[in-house]
């Protein structure tokens, strides 16, 4: 079975690159981009199953970004990963799930697996 593909969109490069390595050690196929403008090309080349999206990035409106991502890859599941403890409810509802930084990697993987189960159920 091919590895599950994850794309991390987060402007904190050290955070995203370390998380990519940690997820890949756990047999995922993870990649990262550090700005919202680089996301479309990464989606095109990486074709992620699940996207881990930072909520607040320079020049990005989170709700618009989620809509853009879903337009580009309709069956992708999006998990918001943010330091914001109380984001707007409409933003949370537009994504599959929400997790607050700093994260426990086992909690993140659990949410990713739930997102995958939903994706498979919908297929």
């Amino acid at each position: 079975m091919p590895p599950v593909k994850l794309l991390i969109i987060d402007d904190e490069e050290d955070y995203a690159s370390a998380l990519v390595e940690r997820l890949n050690l756990r047999k995922f196929d993870a990649a990262a981009v550090y700005s919202s403008k680089d996301a479309p090309a990464a989606i095109e080349s990486h074709r992620p199953d699940v996207i881990l999206l930072d909520l607040f990035m320079p020049g990005m409106d989170a709700k618009d970004m989620i809509m853009t991502l879903k337009d580009a890859v309709p069956d992708v599941e999006i998990i918001i990963v943010s330091g914001h403890a109380d984001p707007a409810q409409d933003v949370i509802k537009s994504a599959f799930d929400y997790i607050i930084k700093p994260i426990e990697i086992k909690d993140l993987i659990e949410k990713v697996n739930k997102a995958l189960a939903k994706k498979k159920g919908a297929a």
Binding site: Y15, A18, R22, L25, H84, A85, I100, K101, P102, I105
Partner: peptide, 24 residues
Amino acid sequence: THEQKNHLAIINESAGLLGDMIEF
């Protein structure tokens, strides 16, 4: 506090990666 959580997240993943290098 949002910014602090971002800093903690980087420390958390960096320390986690060091641990992973030993574990894996």
